[in-house]
Design a protein around this nucleic acid. Structure first.
Lengths: 186, 186, 186, 186
DNA sequence: AATGAATGAGTGTTCATTCAT
DNA sequence: TATGAATGAACACTCATTCAT
């Protein structure tokens, strides 16, 4: 699944456009315009628009896989930190990363999204249980609820950062959020 | 801003369509099809599509106004409970209520959304401060962070319910979330 | 062919609209809007739009019939003066009275226009011949050419007045034009 | 402002359609039909309908610029002859060239028309004054009035030719008109 | 004499995509 | 690797007109 240079340029443009104006803005014409080429040229690099969107979605997931060294709450923190790092590197992502609705319309996309989400939930559940066993997180809250308590705020934080046009220091606020979470969940 | 019967039918259909397939699905043709009338007929009830969308967005906000009786954490809980009640009554809302990206493209819409969000944040901030003074919420967490810690999970819960096609009991999970929040925030 | 009050109001509105924005502006909706009633109400007074347009065209012709008393150049002058008077009374007319192209599209209209124009040309030709016999107009110019030399300027004058939003004194300029014509044609 | 072949074809078709049936007939569908292509194809050659209309209007003005050699009445005659030549080459022009009402509705168009008209009036006024000084035109008629006396008949002649479906020899009649004008204006 | 609700036909325009070059 | 020219399908919206009330 390695991309050529042009392909990377294309999905970067696609990301930028989607972040700016929703999928309504994500048209072949606009992508081509962004790159200064004509529309048919796009089709030299992707078979069709659907392939572009799917590449985009896969892009959301790159480099977020925790490398397995961390455990318990540290695993969770590592996951969150890597998400935040990714978003800081590609700020457009902030606006679309957790916007599953954008891709509601096509089962092709929602299936892809679902499979990505499931994979994450699986590794994360392990971290939660570890953290509870290690005494980092209180045991009287169910894992599903914990997931919401932790990732709800993270998603909201990232979204706010995107909506506010990166007006605040995301990394700092992310660390603050992590320490607050660590405090209240013990 | 009271709506006629037909107008209500139209924005209900619009909501349903958007929930099902994103804004891509929200076309005049589809709305008309949903109601069993022709496209031009829609224009007897709304000046244009934009008015429909704006009515839709305003609809997100109906009946969520806290009546002022509750204070502190009870105020927050009342707000959350009313959101949940609203979503249960109109399940389509679950999928679009927190999908600000859907309306990114048009400043007309995003401005409206922003103003609604601001209004809420204002009333909620008061509840947080009250709760901290009453000892219901620990004081070593900043209000902005608190907002994320409380509403991040609520948003995620509602979204999950919508995405899972209402597979679980939202009201029950909502209460559980509330009691977890009450527990960990003290 | 006498019109009811409402009918007169309708064709007045139609005239005004056409003068302002061409036939593109002449829609049932706009007419209704101008009168503060709804579209179907129009159909109580005219069978269809075509009848309105035809009434409008016939209106161009009212009161321009010379009463037969005048002869020669005086007949021509009387005709021109009555046109000018009519236009001053209904300034909207200035913009559409000589705009045969507006009604090109429908043979129904162009036939009507043609018959009106023919009738005029007939009576006018008589005046020209009389004027030539009476020595008011030189004899070495053909009647067709004379018609152009006289009515070309009149049409242009009226059109300019309409285009300039009645910025100058039409009656005065009309008299000046008449005296210039009388001068140069002798 | 040079046009591609297709662009020229398009505005030729547009001219033809407008001449035949007024602007009502000037639709993208009709233009496309005339050229045997589909509607969207038009948009590869013009950004929108407005651009087509504006190109059309500019076309009215091509090749009418007097080359500066002629003076006085000869300048006027040169201008008129070039107009007539232009209309003979593109007979559709005869029906729409002086139909300012067709473009009333849109200030975009009427402004363009006005600027063209102003430019002409400016160069013509010079000719009139020269002719009066050279004794070709009597001095007791004001320039504005002269303009009407000369161009009123020309406009009417061209219009008549268009309305009569080119039934007479325009060039011949044009020369006759010119000689009549020369005769009566001295 | 007028309205509210609706319609079939048509408007200009944009979409993803294709094809020959 | 790209382009110019095109297309079928869809879009939001407007038109004159009708019908029941």
């Amino acid at each position: 699944m390695t991309l050529t240079n042009r392909q990377t340029e294309i999905i970067d443009a696609a990301l930028k456009l989607t972040a700016k104006g929703g999928i309504q803005e994500l048209t072949i014409k606009n992508i081509a315009g962004e790159l200064g080429i004509t529309e048919p040229a796009i089709y030299r690099h992707f078979q069709n628009k659907s392939e572009i969107v799917k590449s985009m979605i896969r892009h959301f997931d790159e480099g977020v896989v925790p490398d397995g060294k961390e455990k318990g709450f540290e695993g969770i923190a590592a996951f969150i930190r890597s998400r935040i790092r990714q978003v800081i590197n590609t700020p457009s992502l902030a606006r679309v990363m957790f916007a599953e609705e954008l891709f509601l319309d096509d089962p092709e996309y929602s299936d892809l999204l679902l499979s990505l989400m499931h994979r994450h939930k699986h590794t994360l559940r392990r971290f939660f249980l570890e953290a509870q066993e290690q005494g980092e997180i209180r045991k009287d809250i169910h894992a599903d609820q914990l997931f919401r308590l932790v990732f709800g705020p993270v998603r909201l934080l990232i979204k706010q950062w995107g909506m506010a046009d990166q007006a605040f220091n995301l990394q700092e606020q992310g660390e603050e959020l992590l320490s607050a979470l660590r405090k209240i969940l013990r």
